[in-house]
Computed example of a mutant assay.
Amino acid sequence: MNCYVAELDETNRIAAVWVKERKARGPRIFDPKKHIFDPQLANDFVGAPQNEIVRWLTAASLKS
């Protein structure tokens, strides 16, 4: 299970998302070239509503 943590800007919009992978030592900034977001897996979402984080992750993955 991965944990996705939203980092908000001063207008409360998601500026970045950190991902803590199950076996990783610590969280890292989500990079679609290094991380794969699978919405079918059980994940934890912190810092913003799940649907907003999923939307941000999907958009970031499509840009790469």
Rank of each mutant, 00 (worst) to 15 (best):
N2D: 07
D31Q: 05
V17F: 06
H35R: 04
L62M: 02
R28G: 06
A6K: 11
I53F: 08
D9M: 10
E52A: 13
A42F: 05
R28A: 12
A42G: 06
G26V: 06
T11M: 11
R25I: 08
R28D: 05
P39N: 15
V17C: 11
V19Q: 02
A59M: 09
N43K: 14
F45M: 07
A6N: 09
V19S: 01
V5R: 12
I14P: 06
K63Y: 06
F45E: 03
S61A: 02
I14C: 11
A16H: 03
K33T: 11
W18E: 09
S61F: 02
D38G: 07
R28E: 12
F30E: 02
W18S: 14
A16Q: 02
F45C: 02
R25P: 04
W18N: 14
L41S: 04
R55W: 09
D9W: 09
G26K: 06
F45Q: 06
K23G: 13
A48K: 14
Q40F: 10
N2L: 03
D38W: 08
N51L: 14
H35Q: 04
I36Q: 10
P32F: 01
F37N: 05
I14R: 09
I53N: 06
L62Q: 07
K33D: 04
M1L: 14
R28L: 04
H35Y: 03
S61W: 00
E7I: 15
V46H: 09
V17G: 09
W18D: 11
I53K: 09
R28I: 05
G47A: 12
K20I: 01
A48C: 12
N51T: 15
L62R: 04
P32K: 01
V46E: 10
R22T: 13
G47S: 13
I14A: 14
R55D: 10
A48F: 04
Q50D: 06
W56Y: 15
F37H: 10
M1S: 13
A60L: 06
D44F: 07
R13K: 08
I29T: 11
L8C: 14
S61M: 01
S61P: 01
Y4A: 07
V17D: 05
R55P: 04
F30K: 04
F45S: 08
N12F: 03
D31F: 02
F30G: 08
E21M: 11
W18G: 13
V46Y: 06
A15K: 15
A6L: 10
T11W: 05
Q50M: 09
N12E: 03
V5L: 11
R55Q: 12
G47Y: 09
A48I: 05
A24T: 10
N43T: 00
I14H: 10
S64H: 07
N43V: 01
T58R: 08
P39H: 15
D44K: 15
D44E: 15
D44T: 01
L41G: 05
A24C: 08
L62V: 00
A48R: 11
Q40K: 14
A15E: 08
V5D: 05
D9A: 15
H35D: 03
K20Y: 01
V17W: 03
I53M: 11
V5H: 07
S61T: 00
V17P: 03
Q40V: 00
